[in-house]
């Protein structure tokens, strides 16, 4: 790890100014991922701007949505009464992530900004287009058991590792981004990117911007039937092989609306829009669930070690829909 400067500004403005002033600077919040990356030489910011002093730790009911400050701890969000009651899907997804120790450090904004756990990204002696554009993708023909089956490119088949983001994608959240120019809002589903030819870009946050909050619609109809299922190699503290976030609005036996997203399958949390559209107005039956899963897998592709996901993913979708 190289020597670096460290500052801890007291205001949002000072933090954003500092970020703009120094091209090699980076924000640090919980540091649960960034410190690892720095230790391994994957990233080497020359200045860390510690934003933990900023007043962005809050969970508030607003009209029609819940606003969560970007520095709110994952553990605090998961246990908050408002979240447990109105956004159970988010609470479940958070609890499925990492370990209690990590959740006690990790923030909402940091969770969104975490990098892929692809081993080729982490080992600086290996090729990786995300870490070092142009060196090739080590995983494409390598050990790709954890890798993408949807939306990948031949430049990168990494997956985004977050559980929280899968739930937020399903819940139609909005990301509030602040910069010197003021605030802007983008739909959560548009925050993370697909790799395409620029896998070095994980998301659409621009240089000089800061995530300040997440706004999640509190549609009551989705809070009753919500389930996050995560399939992994051990019962806790493991990244998803496949995860599915599902929320159903059902009247009688008819699905009024469905929200579905999948983790462990793509460079970003993967919203299953096709399946959602298919399920709308259908009866909640195994047959329809199977068909929804089949629709979701239409463009899926395996890369060898991860071929099993082509079966595990639809199975998990059906399992989640059945159970929810």
């Amino acid at each position: 790890m190289i020597n670096f400067d460290y500052i801890k500004p007291a205001t949002q403005k000072a933090a954003i100014d500092a970020l703009n002033k120094d091209a090699t600077s980076q924000f640090i919040a919980g540091g649960t991922n960034l410190v690892d990356l720095m230790k391994r030489g994957v990233v080497s910011p020359q200045k860390l701007i510690d934003i933990n002093n900023l007043p962005l730790k809050s969970i508030e009911q607003q009209k029609g949505f819940i606003r969560i400050g970007a520095l709110t701890l994952n553990s605090d969000v998961a246990e908050h009464e408002l979240i447990r009651k109105k956004l159970p899907l988010l609470s479940q997804a958070l609890k499925a992530g990492a370990s209690p120790q990590l959740r006690n450090m990790a923030t909402v904004g940091g969770n969104m900004m975490q990098r892929t756990r692809c081993p080729y990204f982490y080992d600086t002696t290996m090729p990786c287009n995300k870490r070092q554009p142009g060196t090739g993708c080590g995983a494409l023909k390598g050990y790709n058991r954890m890798h993408a089956i949807l939306g990948a490119s031949d430049k990168c088949i990494a997956v985004h590792p977050s559980d929280m983001c899968v739930a937020l994608t399903a819940l139609d959240a909005t990301v509030v981004i602040s910069s010197r120019k003021g605030d802007r809002r983008i739909p959560f589903a548009d925050f993370h990117r697909l790799p395409g030819t620029t896998p070095e870009k994980d998301n659409n946050l621009q240089r000089g911007e800061m995530i300040t909050a997440i706004e999640v619609p509190d549609n009551n109809e989705f809070s009753k039937k919500a389930l996050y299922i995560k399939i992994r190699d051990r019962a806790s503290y493991a990244f998803a092989l496949i995860s599915v976030a599902a929320a159903l609005d059902i009247k009688g036996n008819t699905i009024q609306n469905a929200r579905l997203a999948m983790g462990g399958v793509a460079h970003k949390p993967w919203r299953l829009t096709g399946a959602e559209n298919f399920l709308k107005g259908k009866t909640a039956s195994l047959e329809n669930f199977n068909q929804a899963a089949a629709i979701s897998m239409k463009d899926a592709k395996g890369y060898g070690y991860n071929n099993f996901k082509l079966k595990l993913a639809p199975n998990t979708i059906v399992q989640t829909l059945k159970t929810v």
Partner: peptide, 10 residues
């Protein structure tokens, strides 16, 4: 993180 040994939950 990648070489899994059992955790309490297992």
């Amino acid at each position: 993180a990648d070489y899994h040994v059992p955790v309490h939950a297992d």
